[in-house]
């Protein structure tokens, strides 16, 4: 990238910044170490563990992300959506790359299904071990990136309209579950215990699709051009790359 926003800073200004930053680093180290030595915070480990049976999952990190602090995750997905909408507003996508040669295409045909499979596994295992929607979505998006590198300008994403629905699905289901619990007389995103595990899996499944779509769309880097061909909707339709180029 050749973009530079401002003229090169002067040497004296640079020196001042360095001195100030060294002072800041020293202050932070000193404050943190003094505090850690005398009165470290107890953390929320015990509390998170104690409430785990009421959360619907057995992986405490997933319990925090999808239950205790579910609102953070809902907003985080909205941030990702904002980034994609912003990217789309900045112009159309670039055409992408020429069709890959045999070696890359062969590798992609092998790696992409593996990524999808691993993504599904991570999604499922997230309830009890490290894993979950973001990790799964990131793997699916990696599959999309490989497809684009291999010459598919849309990185296996469906047409624009379907992309828009996929982009909001995870956030929409999340909000709908919240509204459903609200209407049922509980609070927003206050899951009934018997359903909590399944509701979290439902949210995470759609969140995975949305995260994969949003990350891939961000990589494509612009609004998809109007398509002539009728594209197949659905993130999972990762067709094997065309071996002839």
């Amino acid at each position: 990238m050749r973009n530079s926003l401002e003229p090169k800073p002067q040497r004296s200004a640079a020196l001042l910044v360095v001195v100030l930053l060294i002072l800041l680093a020293g202050l932070l180290q000193w404050v943190y170490f003094t505090h850690a030595a005398t009165a470290p915070g107890a953390g929320l480990t015990a509390l998170a563990q104690a409430e785990l049976p009421r959360s619907g999952v057995t992986n405490p990190v997933t319990a925090v992300l999808l239950n205790y602090r579910a609102l953070d995750t809902l907003l985080e997905l909205s941030v990702l959506l904002t980034a994609m909408l912003g990217i789309w507003s900045l112009g159309p996508a670039t055409p992408g790359y020429q069709q890959a040669g045999a070696v890359f295409a062969g590798l992609a045909a092998w790696v992409v299904p593996l990524l999808i499979l691993s993504g599904g596994y991570l999604l499922w295992i997230g309830a009890k071990a490290p894993g979950g929607a973001f990790q799964a979505g990131a793997l699916l998006a990696a599959a999309g990136v490989i497809q684009r590198l291999g010459g598919d300008p849309r990185a296996s994403l469906p047409n624009e309209s379907a992309q828009r629905w996929l982009a909001i699905a995870g956030i929409g289901i999340f909000a709908l579950v919240g509204l459903a619990t609200l209407v049922a007389g509980r609070g927003f995103l206050d899951y009934p215990l018997a359903w909590a595990g399944w509701l979290i899996l439902l949210i995470e499944t759609f969140a995975t699709l949305t995260i994969a779509t949003l990350l891939t769309a961000a990589y494509v880097g612009g609004q998809p051009p109007p398509s002539q061909t009728t594209a197949t909707p659905g993130m999972h339709r990762m067709q094997a790359p065309d071996r002839k180029a």
Partner: peptide, 8 residues
């Protein structure tokens, strides 16, 4: 065990 909140 590690505190899950900062991890999240």
């Amino acid at each position: 065990p590690a505190d899950p909140v900062p991890h999240a």
